[in-house]
Simulated assay, not measured.
Amino acid sequence: MKKQISLLLAALLLLTLLVGCGGSGSAKPAATGYAYDTDASTAPEAPMEQDSKFNITAVVADDALRDAKMIYRANIDLQTTDYETSEAAISNLVRSFGGYFESRSLSNRSSGYRYSDCTVRVPAESFESFCNQVGEMCHVVYMSSSAENITEAYYDTDSRLKTAQIKLERLQNLLANADNMADIITIESAISETEYEIESLSGTLRRYDALVGYATIYMTLSETYKLSENSAAPLTFGQRVSRALSDGLRDAGVFFEELIIGLAGMWVFVLVAAVLVVLLIRAVRKRVLRKKKKDEPSSPENPNHDQPQK
């Protein structure tokens, strides 16, 4: 019986290898016009187009890409002079597209202006429209996008999962018919390893599904009193000089504002330093006066005392 169990295990291992090789070869083919490695991390990104107005356009709508597993991502840096209105508009836009905030943070800078950083998830089919509408609501400083095709990696993982599930079922049948303790221990160990592999592959597929189903947008929103300028055409010498002077005055104003705010925050230290300086000046002045008095010749009390009498 032990020899029969060993033969069955060897046959099961051979069948697993054959099914695994067949599953890898039957994975869904990648989109036409792109070459992919078997490693998902080295799969090239499909090209995205972006114009001078920061509008994001969709990947070329080839029929070959319609069934592909695509992961869409974007990075958007925004500015606004009305922070509360812009933040509320972005929140409403996310909800209107059926998306959600995966993470969100808000900070107040020393200048008094607010800054927020968030990660937004929206349905993949709304990726292009969402990014373009955000760009119309606020002033865009920077915007970039990418599309990653994970078709081959996705279906390879799915094939390996099905193979592991078949292997688990057959191992469980072997365990039910085993009557030798050594064989039972060996089969249970193989079952444990197979269950761990199934759990890992299932988690990978769930992660792929989440990334494919919902696009990821990383956004920052900065409050400012003046929006940065994006010039499409090169500036003349006079325009550059004028802008440099204007920026210099603005930066000088910001510097003195920050200086005053900093001194206001350190008023206790400034007061103590001023008192110490006053005391030091007084001590030095007293010492100088004493030295002068010490160096002056003393006047005689009776000027005729030393004169001889006639």
Rank of each mutant, 00 (worst) to 15 (best):
K2P: 02
Q4V: 00
L7S: 08
A11Q: 11
T16V: 08
G20H: 08
G23H: 11
S24V: 06
A30L: 03
T32N: 09
G33A: 07
Y36F: 14
D39Q: 15
A40M: 05
P47M: 02
P47D: 07
E49L: 07
Q50R: 10
D51N: 14
S52R: 14
T57R: 04
T57I: 04
D62Y: 13
A64P: 04
L65K: 04
D67W: 14
I71M: 14
N75S: 09
I76S: 03
L78I: 04
E84D: 15
I90W: 08
S91L: 04
V94S: 03
F97D: 02
G98V: 03
Y100A: 07
Y100I: 06
S105D: 15
N108D: 15
R109Y: 02
R109S: 00
S110P: 13
D117E: 08
V120L: 06
V122D: 02
A124F: 03
E128G: 04
N132V: 01
N132M: 03
Q133S: 03
G135T: 04
V141E: 06
S146W: 02
N149I: 05
N149C: 13
N149L: 10
N149V: 07
E152V: 08
E152Q: 15
D156A: 00
D156R: 10
D158I: 02
S159K: 01
R160C: 02
L161R: 15
K162T: 06
K162Y: 10
A164M: 12
I166S: 03
R170H: 05
L171W: 10
Q172F: 00
Q172I: 00
L174Q: 08
L175Q: 11
I184D: 01
I185Y: 12
I187W: 06
T194S: 11
E195Y: 07
E195N: 10
Y196K: 10
Y196I: 00
Y196E: 08
E197L: 08
I198Q: 08
E199C: 04
S200A: 12
S202N: 11
L205Y: 06
L205M: 06
R206Y: 09
Y208R: 01
D209R: 13
L211K: 14
L211C: 04
L211A: 07
T216C: 05
Y218A: 03
M219A: 15
K226G: 09
L227A: 09
S228E: 11
S231I: 10
L235K: 15
F237K: 15
G238N: 09
R240H: 14
V241Q: 09
L245R: 12
G248D: 05
R250I: 07
F255T: 12
L259K: 07
I260N: 13
L263F: 12
G265M: 12
F269R: 11
V270L: 15
V270R: 12
V278P: 03
L279Y: 05
L279P: 02
L280R: 14
R290F: 01
S298P: 05
S299T: 14
P300H: 06
H305F: 09
D306L: 13
Q307H: 07
Q309N: 08
